[in-house]
Lab assay of single mutants.
Amino acid sequence: MATVKFKYKGEEKEVDISKIKKVWRVGKMISFTYDEGGGKTGRGAVSEKDAPKELLQMLEKQ
């Protein structure tokens, strides 16, 4: 499965596409929420050019 690499609050993070719950576009950025486990929801964003094609496909399906 594909992963998304991004920075959040200065920390490098990587999340599996299957854990992503919601995806939306903000200008040229793709924002998303994902399941961190333990009932927590994380947030992240990547630029449109750095987003994996699976993430862009999720955006188109909504």
Rank of each mutant, 00 (worst) to 15 (best):
M1K: 09
M1L: 05
M1C: 11
M1V: 11
M1G: 15
M1N: 13
M1P: 06
A2N: 06
A2D: 10
A2K: 09
A2Y: 04
A2F: 08
A2S: 07
A2C: 13
A2I: 07
T3C: 07
T3V: 11
V4F: 05
V4N: 00
V4W: 01
V4R: 00
V4C: 02
V4M: 03
K5P: 01
K5M: 03
K5W: 02
K5G: 01
K5S: 04
K5A: 04
K5L: 08
F6H: 02
F6W: 09
F6Q: 00
F6L: 02
F6T: 01
K7Q: 05
K7M: 06
K7V: 11
Y8A: 11
Y8R: 03
Y8M: 07
Y8G: 02
Y8N: 03
Y8E: 08
Y8T: 02
Y8F: 09
K9A: 13
K9T: 02
K9G: 15
K9I: 02
K9L: 15
K9N: 15
K9Y: 07
G10R: 02
G10D: 14
E11A: 12
E11F: 05
E11H: 14
E11W: 05
E11S: 08
E11D: 04
E12M: 12
E12P: 04
E12T: 08
E12S: 07
E12Q: 11
E12N: 07
K13M: 14
K13Q: 10
K13A: 03
K13R: 06
K13S: 02
K13H: 09
K13I: 14
K13D: 01
K13Y: 11
K13V: 14
E14H: 08
E14V: 06
E14T: 05
E14L: 03
E14R: 05
E14S: 09
E14G: 02
E14A: 05
V15D: 00
V15R: 01
V15T: 09
V15N: 00
V15F: 01
V15I: 07
D16Q: 15
D16N: 11
D16R: 09
D16E: 11
D16A: 10
I17G: 03
I17N: 02
I17R: 03
I17Y: 02
I17E: 02
S18R: 12
S18L: 12
S18C: 14
S18N: 12
K19F: 05
K19R: 11
K19T: 07
K19S: 12
K19L: 13
K19A: 12
K19I: 11
K19Q: 14
K19D: 10
I20T: 03
I20Q: 00
I20L: 13
I20G: 00
I20Y: 00
I20S: 01
K21R: 10
K21W: 12
K21F: 13
K21N: 11
K21G: 15
K21I: 13
K22R: 06
K22Q: 09
K22C: 15
K22H: 04
K22W: 10
K22P: 01
V23L: 06
V23M: 09
V23F: 02
V23Y: 03
V23W: 02
V23E: 01
V23S: 07
V23D: 00
V23H: 01
W24F: 09
W24L: 06
W24Q: 12
W24M: 04
W24A: 06
W24D: 15
R25I: 08
R25Q: 15
R25T: 13
R25F: 09
R25C: 10
R25Y: 08
V26C: 15
V26S: 15
V26E: 15
V26M: 06
V26T: 15
V26D: 09
V26L: 10
G27D: 15
G27I: 03
G27T: 08
G27K: 13
G27M: 09
G27A: 04
K28G: 14
K28Y: 09
K28C: 14
K28W: 03
K28M: 07
K28Q: 10
K28V: 03
K28L: 13
K28T: 05
K28H: 12
M29D: 15
M29K: 12
M29S: 13
M29I: 08
M29Q: 11
M29A: 15
M29G: 11
M29R: 08
I30Q: 00
I30A: 05
I30E: 00
I30V: 09
I30N: 01
I30L: 10
I30R: 00
I30T: 03
I30G: 00
I30C: 04
I30S: 00
S31I: 02
S31E: 13
S31D: 13
S31N: 15
S31A: 09
S31K: 14
S31M: 06
F32W: 01
F32Y: 01
F32N: 00
F32H: 00
F32M: 10
F32R: 00
F32G: 01
F32D: 00
T33C: 14
T33D: 14
T33L: 10
T33W: 13
T33P: 00
T33Y: 08
T33S: 10
T33M: 12
Y34C: 02
Y34G: 00
Y34M: 02
D35M: 07
D35R: 03
D35W: 12
D35E: 07
D35N: 03
D35V: 05
E36P: 11
E36I: 13
E36M: 07
E36N: 14
E36Q: 05
G37M: 13
G37I: 14
G37E: 12
G37H: 10
G38W: 13
G38T: 09
G38H: 14
G38I: 07
G38F: 14
G38R: 07
G38K: 14
G39D: 15
G39K: 06
G39T: 11
G39Q: 04
G39V: 11
G39R: 05
G39F: 12
K40H: 14
K40T: 10
K40Q: 11
K40R: 09
K40S: 13
T41S: 12
T41K: 06
T41V: 10
T41Y: 13
T41L: 07
G42A: 06
G42Q: 09
G42P: 11
G42T: 14
G42V: 11
G42R: 10
R43T: 14
R43V: 06
R43G: 05
R43F: 04
R43M: 03
R43A: 10
G44A: 15
G44C: 03
G44Y: 06
G44V: 05
G44W: 02
G44S: 02
A45V: 07
A45F: 14
A45D: 15
A45N: 10
A45Y: 09
A45I: 10
A45C: 13
V46R: 02
V46Q: 05
V46I: 04
V46A: 09
V46K: 05
V46L: 04
V46Y: 01
V46N: 04
V46W: 01
S47N: 15
S47A: 11
S47D: 10
S47C: 09
S47W: 04
S47F: 04
S47E: 13
S47L: 04
E48W: 05
E48S: 04
E48Y: 08
E48R: 07
E48L: 02
E48C: 13
E48H: 07
E48A: 07
K49G: 13
K49F: 09
K49Y: 11
D50E: 09
D50Q: 05
D50N: 11
A51C: 07
A51R: 02
A51P: 03
A51N: 02
P52V: 07
P52S: 06
P52T: 07
P52D: 07
P52F: 04
P52C: 13
K53W: 08
K53Y: 08
K53G: 10
K53I: 05
K53A: 04
K53R: 07
E54K: 04
E54D: 10
E54N: 07
E54V: 11
E54I: 10
E54M: 08
E54H: 09
L55T: 01
L55G: 00
L55V: 08
L55S: 00
L55F: 12
L55N: 00
L55P: 00
L55Q: 01
L56T: 06
L56V: 13
L56Q: 09
L56G: 04
L56A: 07
L56W: 09
L56S: 07
L56P: 01
Q57C: 11
Q57K: 08
Q57L: 11
Q57S: 06
Q57M: 12
Q57V: 09
Q57R: 03
Q57P: 01
Q57T: 05
Q57F: 12
M58G: 02
M58H: 09
M58Q: 07
L59P: 02
L59I: 03
L59Q: 02
L59S: 04
E60F: 03
E60R: 03
E60H: 05
E60G: 01
E60C: 13
E60P: 03
E60V: 09
K61L: 12
K61C: 12
K61R: 05
K61D: 12
K61P: 07
K61S: 14
Q62H: 13
Q62K: 01
Q62F: 12
Q62A: 06
Q62D: 15
Q62E: 10
Q62Y: 03
